[in-house]
Computed example of a mutant assay.
Amino acid sequence: MNPPRKAQPPSFSAREFRAALGMFATGVTIVTARTAQGELVGLTANSFNSVSLDPPLVLWSLARAAGSLPAFSTGSHYAINILAADQKDLAERFALKGADRWGGVGFAEGAGGAPLLAGAAASFECYNRSRYEEGDHVIFVGEVERCTHRGGASPLLFHGGRFFTEHAL
Protein backbone atom coordinates (compact mmCIF):
# COMPACT_ATOMS: atom_id res chain seq x y z
CA MET A 1 0.00 0.00 0.00
CA ASN A 2 1.41 3.41 -0.99
CA PRO A 3 1.29 6.24 1.53
CA PRO A 4 -0.77 9.32 0.63
CA ARG A 5 1.12 11.83 -1.51
CA LYS A 6 -0.39 14.85 0.19
CA ALA A 7 -1.90 15.75 3.57
CA GLN A 8 -5.66 15.84 3.80
CA PRO A 9 -7.26 19.32 4.05
CA PRO A 10 -7.49 20.50 7.67
CA SER A 11 -10.65 19.70 9.60
CA PHE A 12 -10.32 22.90 11.67
CA SER A 13 -10.28 26.65 11.20
CA ALA A 14 -7.19 28.87 11.41
CA ARG A 15 -8.59 30.26 14.67
CA GLU A 16 -8.93 26.75 16.15
CA PHE A 17 -5.38 25.91 15.04
CA ARG A 18 -4.00 29.07 16.65
CA ALA A 19 -5.86 28.33 19.91
CA ALA A 20 -4.49 24.78 19.99
CA LEU A 21 -0.95 26.05 19.34
CA GLY A 22 -1.41 28.49 22.22
CA MET A 23 -1.61 25.53 24.61
CA PHE A 24 2.13 24.98 24.10
CA ALA A 25 3.94 27.20 26.58
CA THR A 26 7.07 28.82 25.17
CA GLY A 27 9.79 31.17 26.16
CA VAL A 28 9.88 34.63 24.60
CA THR A 29 12.73 35.93 22.48
CA ILE A 30 13.66 39.06 20.62
CA VAL A 31 15.62 38.29 17.47
CA THR A 32 17.95 41.14 16.48
CA ALA A 33 20.25 42.05 13.62
CA ARG A 34 21.93 45.02 12.00
CA THR A 35 21.43 45.68 8.29
CA ALA A 36 24.31 46.37 5.89
CA GLN A 37 23.32 50.05 6.18
CA GLY A 38 23.69 49.90 9.98
CA GLU A 39 19.96 49.95 10.80
CA LEU A 40 18.90 48.02 13.90
CA VAL A 41 16.25 45.35 13.35
CA GLY A 42 14.42 43.38 16.02
CA LEU A 43 11.20 41.50 16.64
CA THR A 44 9.51 39.43 19.32
CA ALA A 45 9.33 35.72 18.50
CA ASN A 46 8.37 32.59 20.39
CA SER A 47 9.18 30.23 17.51
CA PHE A 48 12.63 29.41 18.89
CA ASN A 49 14.00 25.89 19.30
CA SER A 50 17.24 23.97 19.58
CA VAL A 51 18.22 21.80 16.61
CA SER A 52 21.63 20.29 17.29
CA LEU A 53 24.39 20.27 19.89
CA ASP A 54 27.15 19.35 17.42
CA PRO A 55 27.31 21.61 15.56
CA PRO A 56 25.39 24.03 17.82
CA LEU A 57 22.26 24.92 15.81
CA VAL A 58 19.03 26.72 16.70
CA LEU A 59 15.98 27.70 14.65
CA TRP A 60 13.26 30.31 14.61
CA SER A 61 10.67 31.34 12.04
CA LEU A 62 9.40 34.58 10.55
CA ALA A 63 6.29 35.33 8.50
CA ARG A 64 7.00 35.87 4.81
CA ALA A 65 4.96 39.08 5.04
CA ALA A 66 7.22 40.57 7.74
CA GLY A 67 8.88 43.84 6.75
CA SER A 68 12.12 42.70 8.38
CA LEU A 69 12.39 39.52 6.27
CA PRO A 70 14.90 41.02 3.79
CA ALA A 71 17.21 42.14 6.62
CA PHE A 72 17.22 38.70 8.26
CA SER A 73 17.47 36.85 4.93
CA THR A 74 20.49 38.73 3.64
CA GLY A 75 22.48 39.44 6.81
CA SER A 76 25.36 37.23 7.91
CA HIS A 77 24.43 37.20 11.62
CA TYR A 78 21.57 37.65 14.05
CA ALA A 79 21.14 37.28 17.80
CA ILE A 80 18.41 35.49 19.67
CA ASN A 81 17.82 37.11 23.05
CA ILE A 82 15.81 35.01 25.52
CA LEU A 83 13.88 37.46 27.66
CA ALA A 84 13.89 37.49 31.43
CA ALA A 85 10.65 37.67 33.42
CA ASP A 86 11.07 41.43 33.99
CA GLN A 87 11.25 42.18 30.24
CA LYS A 88 7.54 41.84 29.38
CA ASP A 89 7.37 45.51 28.29
CA LEU A 90 10.23 44.93 25.87
CA ALA A 91 8.48 41.86 24.42
CA GLU A 92 5.33 43.91 23.82
CA ARG A 93 7.23 46.85 22.32
CA PHE A 94 9.13 44.66 19.82
CA ALA A 95 5.86 42.97 18.81
CA LEU A 96 4.23 46.26 17.73
CA LYS A 97 4.30 47.43 14.12
CA GLY A 98 5.53 50.95 13.50
CA ALA A 99 6.70 51.50 17.10
CA ASP A 100 10.05 52.98 18.11
CA ARG A 101 11.46 49.66 19.23
CA TRP A 102 14.99 50.80 20.04
CA GLY A 103 14.49 54.06 21.97
CA GLY A 104 16.20 53.74 25.36
CA VAL A 105 17.00 50.04 24.91
CA GLY A 106 20.39 49.02 26.27
CA PHE A 107 22.43 46.58 24.22
CA ALA A 108 25.95 45.49 23.37
CA GLU A 109 27.14 44.72 19.87
CA GLY A 110 27.42 41.03 19.07
CA ALA A 111 28.65 39.09 16.04
CA GLY A 112 27.95 40.89 12.77
CA GLY A 113 26.64 43.87 14.74
CA ALA A 114 23.57 42.01 16.04
CA PRO A 115 22.38 43.67 19.27
CA LEU A 116 22.63 41.67 22.50
CA LEU A 117 19.90 43.03 24.78
CA ALA A 118 20.85 44.13 28.27
CA GLY A 119 19.17 42.06 30.96
CA ALA A 120 18.32 39.09 28.73
CA ALA A 121 18.26 35.70 30.45
CA ALA A 122 20.40 34.27 27.62
CA SER A 123 21.65 35.22 24.19
CA PHE A 124 22.78 33.29 21.14
CA GLU A 125 24.98 34.93 18.50
CA CYS A 126 24.23 33.10 15.27
CA TYR A 127 25.72 32.81 11.82
CA ASN A 128 22.80 32.85 9.36
CA ARG A 129 23.41 29.28 8.14
CA SER A 130 20.26 28.37 6.18
CA ARG A 131 16.64 29.23 5.46
CA TYR A 132 13.67 27.11 4.44
CA GLU A 133 10.41 28.44 3.03
CA GLU A 134 7.44 26.53 4.42
CA GLY A 135 3.83 27.70 4.23
CA ASP A 136 3.54 31.36 5.15
CA HIS A 137 6.84 31.42 7.10
CA VAL A 138 10.58 31.17 6.57
CA ILE A 139 12.47 28.91 8.97
CA PHE A 140 15.92 30.25 9.87
CA VAL A 141 18.64 27.89 11.10
CA GLY A 142 21.49 29.63 12.90
CA GLU A 143 24.88 28.21 13.79
CA VAL A 144 25.66 29.49 17.28
CA GLU A 145 29.09 31.12 17.48
CA ARG A 146 28.72 32.42 21.06
CA CYS A 147 26.17 32.11 23.82
CA THR A 148 25.76 33.53 27.31
CA HIS A 149 23.25 33.11 30.12
CA ARG A 150 22.52 34.70 33.47
CA GLY A 151 22.40 32.04 36.17
CA GLY A 152 19.29 32.37 38.30
CA ALA A 153 17.42 34.59 35.81
CA SER A 154 13.74 33.67 35.54
CA PRO A 155 12.54 33.49 31.92
CA LEU A 156 9.51 35.25 30.48
CA LEU A 157 6.95 32.66 29.33
CA PHE A 158 3.99 32.83 26.92
CA HIS A 159 0.92 30.58 27.02
CA GLY A 160 -2.63 30.96 25.75
CA GLY A 161 -2.06 34.54 24.61
CA ARG A 162 -0.70 35.72 28.00
CA PHE A 163 2.67 36.25 29.64
CA PHE A 164 3.78 34.28 32.70
CA THR A 165 6.79 33.77 34.90
CA GLU A 166 8.08 30.40 36.01
CA HIS A 167 6.89 28.59 39.12
CA ALA A 168 8.63 25.41 40.19
CA LEU A 169 6.38 22.42 40.84
Score class of each variant (00 low, 15 high):
165 T>H: 14
82 I>D: 04
28 V>A: 08
40 L>I: 04
55 P>D: 01
73 S>G: 06
71 A>Y: 08
118 A>N: 12
20 A>T: 12
65 A>V: 09
106 G>W: 10
142 G>E: 01
26 T>W: 00
164 F>R: 01
88 K>N: 09
70 P>E: 03
105 V>S: 02
110 G>H: 09
116 L>A: 03
22 G>Q: 01
112 G>F: 01
44 T>D: 05
16 E>G: 00
132 Y>N: 12
119 G>V: 09
25 A>E: 10
62 L>P: 05
9 P>E: 07
160 G>L: 04
110 G>Y: 11
124 F>T: 02
63 A>G: 11
38 G>P: 07
54 D>N: 15
84 A>T: 03
121 A>F: 02
130 S>G: 14
10 P>Y: 11
19 A>G: 08
146 R>K: 14
99 A>Q: 12
113 G>A: 09
48 F>C: 05
29 T>D: 04
11 S>N: 13
144 V>I: 10
158 F>T: 03
168 A>G: 12
70 P>D: 07
85 A>N: 05
126 C>G: 03
50 S>Q: 12
93 R>T: 13
50 S>K: 07
121 A>S: 07
66 A>L: 06
137 H>C: 10
157 L>K: 10
135 G>K: 14
86 D>E: 14
91 A>D: 09
112 G>N: 07
137 H>K: 05
153 A>T: 06
56 P>T: 03
165 T>K: 14
101 R>L: 09
30 I>C: 00
54 D>M: 03
146 R>P: 03
67 G>R: 08
108 A>D: 14
117 L>M: 13
101 R>S: 08
